[in-house]
Design a protein around this nucleic acid. Structure first.
Lengths: 240, 240
DNA sequence: CGCAGCTTTGATCTGGCTCAAGAGTTGTGG
DNA sequence: CCACAACTCTTGAGCCAGATCAAAGCTGCG
């Protein structure tokens, strides 16, 4: 496991700063998150494109904060079916599902060369006991993951294909702008098949819906390069 | 809020005992769970059939352990769409999604006259700081909820109607047997519409699939009364 | 340059939805 | 205790969104 000490240097990484230069939920939160990483992320680990950060069933003793790069996480079921359960970019936490059982319930794969901060459970649990603010922050992270999953269940259970794709694009745009990137122009890191798996659609359907939204003038599509031309319009698609 | 003190009496409730008279994940776990409730559940609250334990957006300062009865939880989205996100019976914890934000993200409705143990956040957080075993237990509960949600995302995204219903029935059977009830004969507390909403199907489809499974001799259906006649057969449906 | 993987696009098929009618069940008030 | 209203469940007929199958372009890497 290629792990390097990172505590002293991580504090001022521009990506991390950007990740929390945002309005919204909690102006105080970046401080909490930074405090958490400063206190418990003693190592970083590099993952090359296509490699796994962890696999389903691996013993787990840490969660990870994405320092830079891009990941997908997948759930695997008994019959070997696999489905993308999330995409994760700088500042996101991966591996919370392993906190309880000691085994990861899915796998995490880097979609580009990436680096994560390793947050070992023992240190995490200790700091959560000692610093109430960080205990609260940890609970917030866990609850937010649950809320996110509930949103996905809703999307998968009750939206049509076009709505699903619109939700995917607006969500991605929102997360990018929070991190200081352009909200309207970006390169997808994942394939159509990954997007389809995530949204409960086939890759051909994703491709066709992209085409359809482009014809309506809502987005521009050129392979993996996406431009959002009419965000309000996209959001209107969502409100079926 | 009709709340009555319950700490002295709760320990030996037969339902709670039954809830954990089970094999599986952790033989030690009932002790943890009981300890948690003994330490932080000072009140109970009765909810009559059809009433809400909480609604989406309510300020939240507690989670709930189902003492007896049966609940559904629902997610609500911006456009007013609502979808059932889970069913909860004795021993289950409801409201973990509110732990972070201070607002519940969905609502919980009693499907029969029920009673819950109220676990206020401040007491929960304090006991988690003071007792490492309970901190660990809380994390396990949160992570288990995330794993459960991932399973639902998989079900919603990649299974057909018959597989979804088979998964629903085998899951319900497994949970009932864990609680000391018959695994093969039970009364559904929820409507076909609720089941459909939960599984991402229409109620007519649920009804038809029930009929189909009955014709194959896998189950017996008489309105809300269900008999599981061939559990291995049902599980084979699941392994498409 | 050539091959492998990704994306687009077309044609066809089908599982589950929609609409509709009727039967069973439950709760309520007279 | 019965009658009626409001749900809930089943079943049928037809339809449509998205899946499947198939065939090219495109991209990037060795």
């Amino acid at each position: 496991m290629p792990a390097i000490a990172c505590q002293p240097s991580i504090r001022n990484q521009p990506e991390i700063q950007a990740a929390f230069r945002q309005p919204g939920r909690a102006a105080a939160e970046p401080a909490e998150h930074q405090l958490l990483i400063d206190n418990v992320a003693y190592f970083r680990r590099r993952i090359r494109r296509g490699e796994s950060l962890f696999n389903a069933g691996d013993a787990c003793n840490a969660i990870y904060s994405v320092h830079h790069g891009f990941f997908k996480t997948c759930v695997v079921d008994g019959e070997g079916r696999e489905q993308v359960s999330g995409f994760h970019m700088v500042g996101d936490i991966i591996g919370l599902d392993g906190l309880g059982s000691g085994r990861y319930d899915g796998r995490a794969v880097a979609l580009e060369d990436s680096e994560v901060c390793v947050i070992p459970f023992p240190a995490l649990e200790k700091v959560a006991r000692d610093v109430p603010r960080l205990q609260r922050h940890l609970h917030t992270l866990l609850a937010r993951e649950i809320v996110r999953d509930h949103g996905m269940m809703m999307l998968l259970g009750s939206l049509g294909a076009e709505e699903k794709v619109a939700a995917f694009l607006t969500g991605l745009s929102r997360r990018l702008v929070q991190r200081g990137y352009s909200p309207s122009e970006f390169n997808l890191r994942m394939s159509r098949a990954d997007i389809g798996s995530y949204l409960g659609l086939k890759l051909e359907t994703v491709s066709r819906v992209f085409g359809g939204l482009a014809e309506k003038g809502l987005i521009g599509v050129d392979q993996k390069h996406i431009r959002i031309l009419d965000l309000p319009g996209l959001e209107r698609v969502l409100a079926s």
